[in-house]
Amino acid sequence: MAKSIKVRAKVKGGTTVVKALISHAMETGLRKNKKTGKKFPAHFIQEVTCSHNGKDVLTADWGTAISKNPYLSFKFKGAKSGDTLKMSWVDNKGESDSVEAKIK
């Protein structure tokens, strides 16, 4: 099973720029199934965590209005090339995934 998270992290001038793409349907719970007329149940990521050296550098609470296949970028100081960055998410159904990436 391929990981649902793709992360790119690069240090430049002491600042690490993190960019991530997550494969997730992000259903709002409001979209109707044209065939059945019923709404697709809500299914969306609620929490995203990103840590470096065991410390959280960014945590996020998300609602249903983050786009499908979510994109997230942020910046932080204190990491160096070769360090490991850990990112994880949990959705409203309790599903989750996490990934580790080397900072370039």
């Binding site: 391929a2 793709k6 790119r8 960019k19 991530a20 793409l21 494969s23 499908k68 296949n69 994109y71 970028s73």
Partner: peptide, 15 residues
């Protein structure tokens, strides 16, 4: 294009 969602599907195609 900074991080395009099609990359997810290029990966699937690669597999």
């Amino acid at each position: 294009e900074d991080f395009p969602p099609y990359e997810i599907f290029v990966d699937k195609g690669n597999v």
